[in-house]
């Protein structure tokens, strides 16, 4: 790897291994993810791409049998260091999940939840401002501004997912992890979210797991291809899709495996 890439990297991992009870889910993955870009993780289901994503904000900690070894650094700091509090880490590394999961609260409270627990607002006015800004960034403000106090679960699927994105943005993260954010959405909602992702990369570094190659090609600048727990190939999205180096990547792209 070149030195310039090293210094630019927002997230860098070296030799990451993940074990569940008796399966070896991630095998020696090293990758450098740049700031203010969209990086896509692709691969057949069960290849470990979601597991790897969940290592980046230590969501795997919540699974008892999961063991993570190796080195994951964000801005040069080892996030698995004993001194790191996962709570602080997750405020910095936001996450959007596969299925829209708004809390059973109002739209406003959904977005305000993160800032409240992290104490980001000193008063109600500031909180209002954060909520509005987040909803605007998530392209939901126009639809939601008149019904901020109605329950978040009453929105449509695509709106719910954008609400979850707004909720994640509200804690002012630097990195946004998205775990197949469109898999539960219809094509129109998907298009809206993809458009949003494009917008988001201006302020965050976005890592997105997707099972759709077309989506990866549409939204990302960098793509990593996982297969059976290995990182097979990582590079510019254009190159991966037009001229992959590894035969396995080629088979996947052309639809022979996966």
């Amino acid at each position: 790897m070149k030195d310039t890439q090293m210094t630019n990297a927002k997230i860098s991992t070296k030799g990451v291994q993940v074990h569940y009870a008796d399966t070896h889910a991630i095998k020696d993955v090293s990758v450098e993810i740049a700031d203010k870009t969209v990086t896509a993780f692709i691969g057949p289901s069960g290849c470990g791409k979601s597991t790897f994503l969940r290592c980046i904000n230590r969501m795997n900690d919540t699974i008892d049998s999961c063991r993570v070894t190796g080195d994951i650094r964000i801005e040069g700091e080892d996030i698995y260091d004993v001194k790191v509090d996962p709570v602080q880490l997750r405020a910095k590394v936001g996450m959007v999940f596969q299925k829209p999961n708004p809390f059973p609260k109002s739209i406003y409270d959904n977005v305000a939840y993160g800032p409240k627990i992290h104490g980001l607002a000193r008063n109600k006015a500031e909180l209002d401002e954060i909520v509005e800004k987040s909803l605007r960034k998530a392209a939901l403000w126009n639809e939601a501004k008149d019904r901020l106090l109605s329950p978040g679960t009453g929105l449509s699927g695509g709106q719910q997912q954008r609400l979850c994105i707004a909720r994640a943005i509200a804690t002012a993260p630097e990195i946004l992890l998205m775990d197949e954010p469109c898999s539960a959405l219809d094509p129109i909602a998907t298009a809206q979210v993809e458009e949003l992702i494009d917008e988001l990369q201006k302020s965050f570094s976005v890592v997105i797991v997707t099972h759709s190659m077309q989506q990866a090609a549409r939204v990302s600048q960098k793509t990593a291809f996982f297969h059976l727990g290995n990182l097979v190939e990582y590079g510019d999205t254009d190159k991966i899709f037009t001229n992959p180096e590894d035969p396995r990547t080629e088979s996947y792209i052309s639809g022979r495996i996966g």
Binding site: T62, L89, R90, G94, M95, P102, Y113, G114, R167, A168
Partner: peptide, 21 residues
């Protein structure tokens, strides 16, 4: 579980997740 993940993913502690979600 997705509800808990949503809250933990925002950096809430377990007890905050339990009490507020």
């Amino acid at each position: 579980q997705t509800m808990r993940d949503g809250s933990l993913g925002l950096g809430a502690t377990k007890s905050e997740t339990i009490r507020q979600v």
